[in-house]
Design a protein around this nucleic acid. Sequence first.
DNA 1: TCTGGGGTCCTAGGACCC
DNA 2: TCTGGGGTCCTAGGACCC
Length: 432
Amino acid sequence: MTLDGELPMFALVDCNNFYASCERVFNPLLQGRPVVVLSNNDGCIIARSEEAKALGIRMGTPEFKCRELLRQHNVTVFSSNYPLYGDMSSRVMTTLAALAPEIEVYSIDEAFLDMSSFRRYNLQEYGGLMRRTIRQHTGIPVSIGMAPTKTLAKAANRLAKKDPHYQGVCILSSDADIRAALERTAVEDIWGIGRQWSARLKLRGIYTAADFAAAPAAWVQKHLHIVGARIQAELNGRSCLQMELVRPQKQSICTSRSFGRSVFLKEELHQAVATFAAKCAFKLRREQALASMLTVFVSTSPFDADGNRYWGTRTIALRPPTQDSIAIIHAAGVILDSVFQEGPAYKKAGVLVSGLVSDTMQAVPLPLFSDEESALDERGGSIMRVMDAVNSHYGKGSIRLAAENFESWKPNQERLSPCTTTRWSDIISVRA
DNA sequence: TCTGGGGTCCTAGGACCC
DNA sequence: TCTGGGGTCCTAGGACCC
């Protein structure tokens, strides 16, 4: 319920096949043609254009398993280009923000809007206007679902995408419309119900969202706990999830990568871990946060058939909490020494910082008795500031610490499109 | 040959305290 | 002989999301 007593109305705006659509915006020859985008390391398919979906290419399929199919149908394949997608995302979000009073950016390609005060207008028409505006400003096609709860808006959005009859905008406001939509939604397609839970629900004879909405609340609470109970309430029209207008402080920041090949040497792992640690430190400074805990992990491939799985991880406290690259790289190196074992074929490593506290807070807990230099000391802080400024101006990696190395363990990225919107040298030239 | 990365929330169980 | 109970903090693990 909003303040003036109106029922809430949420819109979920979701970009269609976002990464594939981004690639097509700057390459019009690809319109109407199958396009896929690969995960980091060119491993799995993580985005597909409609034409690629029609070929039966499944989400998450390893590229090597459908290489023949991709070749046969002349599918255009891209490595993922996050600078491009991030920039396109912010263009979409900026456009959206001008179209509704409140916006919650939920992910790189989705946003919730508060449409409560628009209920008296023709929402179907307004949704159409939003779609056209975003298309015109950014080139990205979107689908829009609107309903009295976030979970129902998600379901509406799914129908808008799936069923051409909605022309990209599905409004669920009457009880009858909501009921019909729930009957058309499989239980595994409900937002928040994943593989494990949908399997358990089906064992109990619950196959659709309508079945789930009608299931005994006590049973749901017992087996799916409070999260499931909330989803059920939302499906029944009781709004539990509110708009989150300010992004909450992150609780942890992780940088990890699979390697393009097996790594055996400790020195190479040190370079990788130092690079990830520096990236974490950079993200911390961008978030204006200090980390009080540091975790490093190294592992072999989870797909290794001979069962020689090795997973080494350790967490230490960072005292005082810090965002300094040098301090974090050093500590990460110490942890790596303690978890490294000679022998395993390492395929992945990562650095995670947690226990984050704001660096703008007055009360950063400092140790009472310590000879350690504060991570916030003038010199360290200003070096980091200068480094970030140089890298922001001249491009990522222009200055880096000697421990970082980008070569030997670098992931595969063979089919990268240019950073059309974020790098001067990649800008498109148009000839008349 | 070749299988992503970065997050969140919740629960259960143990340690510890009063 | 009898052997509490509740709160908090931490960690590990499970489930989910995009």
